[in-house]
Write a protein that binds this DNA or RNA. Sequence first.
DNA 1: GTCTATATTGTGATAGAC
DNA 2: GTCTATCACAATATAGAC
Lengths: 228, 228
Amino acid sequence: MIKPTRSRRRAPRARTSPPAPSDADTESRILDAAHAVFMRHGTAGARMQEIAREAGVNQALLHYYFRSKKGLADAVFRRAVLTVIPPVIQLLGSDTPLPDKVARAVHLYLDNLSRAPILPGYLLAELNHHPERAQQLFRAMTGLDRNEFAPRVLSRLRAQIAEQVRAGTMRATRAEDLVITIASLCLFPFAARPMLTAILGMDDDEFTRLIKRRRSDLPDFILRGFRP
Amino acid sequence: MIKPTRSRRRAPRARTSPPAPSDADTESRILDAAHAVFMRHGTAGARMQEIAREAGVNQALLHYYFRSKKGLADAVFRRAVLTVIPPVIQLLGSDTPLPDKVARAVHLYLDNLSRAPILPGYLLAELNHHPERAQQLFRAMTGLDRNEFAPRVLSRLRAQIAEQVRAGTMRATRAEDLVITIASLCLFPFAARPMLTAILGMDDDEFTRLIKRRRSDLPDFILRGFRP
DNA sequence: GTCTATATTGTGATAGAC
DNA sequence: GTCTATCACAATATAGAC
């Protein structure tokens, strides 16, 4: 496929003040609508027409601002990545003592996701269906194609784990395992929400209560699990 | 949309012996190809043409056997559900002592999924993008629209948990939390594999080793986590 | 049952008026 | 910047020969 190098879109006018959320400028309204639609249906299932309707504009404007469906999808993906991942990375790489770190990570995840419950499902689906998203994930976070922060965060965690092991409060554990365990326990219930509510016969209220319960139970559960 | 009630397809000829996997009969070859393509791209992203090519037949045959893309997608979904869920349900509802049950569930999940690693990602995406799949999930497993086995399995687990609590080997825990915890720890790494390998900088071999490690670590981790 | 050819939509994208 | 109208093509689905 030959891709004509056109960049038709004018540079967005400089804004002097942030737009009001309810009557935001057109570009944000489109991005918000796209966000909602892409979350629900995934990139392949999303329809430009539905986004336009939800943004209250016509379909041509979507192309005026974002040039193509791919452009819009990339913008949404980027925004989604920046919402979930950096705060946790930042926390995990910090100097917070390990037990606090675990508790804070759980709270950070669960509180953020309670406000954006379908975000994990969207991200997982996106990465499974479009392998190239893995690269975009780095570019979104660091501007680089390759992974800079993983070594830093992991070595920080390794040092902290070693400390706990010496203190006798934890058994030898790989940093990767710790990270994956926390992520699994926090993210999975949201990603699998439709399956879980169906199989376990829960309604929305019960799901919310379940998350609240896990918010207070998980930190302790995790720390106990890793004790010697 | 008016749906003409046609059932053009002949009943599949009775088979006297199971077909050889490599040169299976056409219907299975199509279903296998569809399975692979739907897993990779999701229902919305899958293309009938790609399925036909991968099955080594032309596109018209897909419609001859499955009538529509939706028909094919439903067949694949049904098959996927039957692969992952019933074995675990069956195990969790059984009389196996609880600690063994946990270990066996972990092994069952991880061993099955190591052979079909993208199945969890496909199922989660499918349920997130197509809410009606929740009903199909029941019909696939029980033939019923409503959830019959959840009460049975959950009450069995509740009884076993109460037993452990009396014995002082476990603290009071909801059966739902136990199930979700096990499912999270086992399914998430597969569903999030592209994200995890990217962020943690793992290759395929390292991922396999990680799963192997967790296969032996997780049962103990879970039981410790729930201890008083 | 399996094929080729074709009909019929669906959907992303563009042209051009205002 | 925003709209209406339309294009071009991709993708599902069907007809009909063999």
